[in-house]
Write a protein that binds this DNA or RNA. Structure first.
Lengths: 335, 335
DNA sequence: TTGAAAGCGCTAACAA
DNA sequence: TTGTTAGCGCTTTCAA
């Protein structure tokens, strides 16, 4: 009788039942072709009968491989990340990796905590939203010698693999779309104001200044985006700048909320006020009128992350690199 | 030189540096009060210097405890689950548990796969969306002897802990709200048609039949819900049943999409058509008019799950139980 | 307050 | 094709 034991079925139990040693059972699971067919069948049925579940910790400890990858996302309620997740998941799970999802709530401190946690879980790669991290997080990542993907935005100084799009450029492009259509008093509405929102706003400012126009009509808040907030903030903007002709919102949620507020106020969109959002979520095509937006290649980002990461995990040495997947301006009917 | 070694910093490295044994370092981390203050400080600075990250697998293997709990959610893009997650996370992480999130995509087969995976990770509890599982999943859960929470809906035969609300009753209540306001030709619009959507629809049918009314005006699809789909399906319903007076949608996304379609068709809501959704998401309060909906206590569900689970994990033996957290009907302005 | 010994369940490396 | 041996990094148990 062992001194300590969990009571769970182990490889040894299967081995005893079949009359082989545990390494053979282990092989039957991991390299079935290296075990004779007859034996394999007996092992499989014993596993089934006894309800064996492998102990991942033991395997990871012995092999030094966890077969898992961490994907950190800022928000669980934002479809932007769910599409990236789908691409990553599909690519990596085919290759035998488990994707562990972590939720940062847009906080780089929480990100740091999760990086620590997942490194202690022995993940073989980390996928991070954004390119801003705490110093401590960067130190952890450097020491871990594990592939790291930074995504969504681009940086000149990637830690390792960087896949995303130029948020500033997208902000410029959307603003120019307003200007090309003759709008001059174009405001900016921003919430949460994470790094990407800041970049989009900076793009708006750049484009306005370049056109010799005022970038004063700007309202931001650190609060999280929501439809309701979009409506409320649009109200404040209209009060403060009654001459407003158009509003570029830092994301689709705010833009939709702003559109609803216009409907309540019987303000024609785009007749009395033009609107645009950012991301190209489903809602922008559903509203009346459809919303102008910057369509970001989220699914593709997920796919590309998976493929770059797999190359890296399978040994292809890559030096730090940035990959710009671009964006598209969709005018919809609100501009 | 050891035959195998990961090159990572281990407890032993810290111990060597400080001049103690590894068990003392281990204690300094887990039971700091049992190590002298001076030593503790030296250990802490060595940990910092060398960048030690504990190996979770080794700890879990040795102690038989993983300090982690799995939370499976059907969709990453549905705010319904993000609020539950927040409650669960807050409650459990305070108590030292790591919450591992898994994504089932509404598939009980995928759920089964994730249950298997997370059991092999040694999670100390599982939180599942819904009360329907594959037979194999039930067998896995039974053998695992680990607390299980089934949530969102209620069942007469909980596996263990069941926290949710009566989806059928909510469907009945919302339908009755239509009837009380004089609507008679009330249709039902459903997408995805997971078990909860089915229960809501059954509630609608029950209420209509009890009132002696026809439950024919019903359109469903297995496709995932989206705003766009809500609009398209409403179009089909109006074509098929031009006499439709009201539509109860199985969730808020569909209802919002239906509202947008009404706006496009210049159909007054609720004048020409009344609408209602389900869940009470942010969007229902933002649209013009605000949407009638069934407000579900999602945050509270998360909180209650955490507290029941902690009690259970800390040893309080509970027999299988169902907890009904109820719902509220909010009329908004679309009814 | 600190340490020695053993073992958690598995896999790598080598052997037959 | 199957087995033997050692050890992954940590914690438990018992001892000092």
């Amino acid at each position: 009788m062992p001194r300590r034991s969990s009571g769970r079925v182990t490889l040894q139990h299967i081995a005893d039942r079949v009359g082989v040693t545990k390494i053979t059972v282990s092989r039957a699971l991991r390299e079935p072709h290296r075990v004779s067919a007859a034996l394999r069948l007996r092992i499989e049925s014993a596993i089934d009968e006894l309800g064996y579940i492998p102990n991942h910790s033991a395997g990871a400890l012995a092999s030094g491989r966890s077969h898992s990858v961490a994907l950190l996302i800022p928000s669980l309620s934002n479809s932007v990340f769910s599409e990236i997740q789908r691409g990553v998941q599909e690519g990596l799970s085919e290759a035998g990796y488990q994707v562990l999802i972590g939720h940062t709530g847009y906080s780089i401190l929480e990100e740091e905590r999760l990086i620590d946690t997942y490194l202690s879980y022995g993940v073989e790669a980390l996928i991070l939203p954004g390119t801003r991290h705490t110093d401590h997080a960067c130190r952890l990542l450097a020491r871990a010698r594990v592939p790291v993907v930074e995504t969504l935005e681009l940086t000149e100084t990637p830690l390792d693999i960087n896949v995303g799009l130029d948020q500033h450029e997208a902000g410029v492009a959307m603003t120019q779309a307003f200007l090309e259509r003759g709008y001059r008093r174009v405001g900016f509405l921003g919430a949460r104001m994470d790094h990407r929102a800041q970049l989009r706003m900076a793009g708006w400012e750049t484009a306005m200044r370049q056109a010799g126009l005022s970038a004063q009509r700007c309202l931001t808040t650190p609060h999280p985006s929501s439809y309701r907030l979009g409506g409320e903030m649009l109200g404040s903007m209209l009060e403060r700048w009654p001459d407003l002709e158009a509003v570029f919102c830092c994301n689709d949620d705010l833009a939709a909320g702003a559109l609803f507020e216009c409907q309540r106020r019987r303000l024609e969109v785009p007749g009395a006020l033009a609107l645009a959002g950012f991301n190209g979520l489903d809602i922008t095509e559903a509203t009346a009128p459809p919303l102008a937006t910057v369509v970001t290649p989220r699914r593709r980002i997920g796919d590309v992350i998976a493929s770059r990461l797999l190359a890296r995990l399978q040994g292809t040495p890559l030096r730090p690199s940035s990959e710009n997947l671009g964006f598209q301006i969709r005018i919809g009917g609100s501009l």
